Amino acid sequence: MATKAVCVLKGDGPVQGIINFEQKESNGPVKVWGSIKGLTEGLHGFHVHEFGDNTAGCTSAGPHFNPLSRKHGGPKDEERHVGDLGNVTADKDGVADVSIEDSVISLSGDHCIIGRTLVVHEKADDLGKGGNEESTKTGNAGSRLACGVIGIAQ
């Protein structure tokens, strides 16, 4: 089992970053940390998408990683996509320092995120509470600013 993974985020604009993942036990939580720069100040949706395909930019990554066919939600919700990591918060300089621990994603097994795409979005994720159909699919997080395929790390 891989215990570490990394993702280099890039987009068409100024947004870029490096996100690290570490899972010490196969059924334990995954620590997610790193930094994203070039964002507007505020909240930005942060999700693992189904495919590791960036051939047409971030759009070819498909929908959120959702092997259990659930509705979109927040990272602490029972009803959520596996890939729903909530929001990252950018400061006035456009930098989001990421520090998350998640017990639904994994670096092995059915919820493995390796080979899938991590995406940072234009807007805040409403965590499935926006009151419309799009909220239950995407959290109304808007366009995909930057993305990268999650790969095994040393």
Rank of each mutant, 00 (worst) to 15 (best):
S26G: 10
E122G: 13
I100M: 12
G131S: 14
H111P: 09
I18A: 11
G83Q: 00
G42E: 08
E25S: 12
L145C: 07
A141K: 01
G34N: 02
E122L: 13
G17K: 00
V104T: 11
N66W: 02
E41N: 13
G130D: 10
G139E: 02
D93W: 11
H72W: 00
V98S: 05
S135L: 03
G94L: 11
G83V: 00
L127W: 06
T40C: 14
A90Q: 06
C7W: 00
S103L: 08
N27A: 09
S135T: 07
N66L: 04
L85R: 01
V119Y: 00
R70Y: 14
F65W: 09
A61E: 01
L9N: 02
T40M: 08
S99G: 15
V104L: 14
N132D: 15
D12W: 13
G73E: 02
T138Y: 05
S99Y: 09
L68I: 15
G38A: 11
D91A: 10
L107F: 09
K37W: 07
P63W: 05
T55G: 04
R70M: 08
L68V: 04
G45V: 01
E41M: 14
L39I: 06
I100A: 11
E50R: 06
G57D: 05
P67Q: 06
P75S: 10
D126C: 05
T3C: 09
S69F: 15
K24F: 13
L43C: 15
K24Y: 08
G13N: 15
V48T: 05
G13S: 08
G86N: 04
H72Q: 02
G11N: 08
D110Q: 10
K123P: 00
S135G: 05
L9P: 05
K137H: 06
E79W: 13
K92L: 13
P67F: 06
N27T: 05
V15D: 13
V6I: 05
V15E: 14
C147F: 03
G74T: 15
G148A: 12
R80F: 03
E78D: 15
T40E: 14
K71I: 08
K92E: 10
S103C: 09
S108D: 11
C58W: 00
L68A: 05
C7Q: 02
K92G: 08
D91F: 15
D77Y: 08
K31P: 03
I19C: 10
S106W: 07
I150D: 02
G57S: 15
N20E: 15
D53L: 00
K76F: 15
T117K: 04
I113A: 10
E133M: 10
I114L: 08
N66Q: 12
V8K: 10
V119T: 04
S26A: 10
G131R: 11
A124D: 12
V88K: 02
E79T: 07
G13E: 06
I100E: 13
K24T: 10
D126A: 02
H72F: 00
F51R: 03
N87G: 03
K129N: 15
D93M: 08
F46E: 00
G62M: 02
D77E: 13
D126L: 01
G57R: 03
A146S: 07
R80W: 01
R144W: 01
F65C: 06
D125Q: 01
N132F: 14
V6S: 06
T138F: 05
Q16A: 14
K137D: 01
K4V: 11
D84G: 02
L118Y: 01
K92Q: 11
T136S: 07
D102G: 11
E122W: 10
E101W: 10
E101A: 07
V30H: 04
G109E: 08
S69M: 08
K37E: 12
G11F: 11
D97F: 11
N132H: 12
V8F: 05
S35T: 14
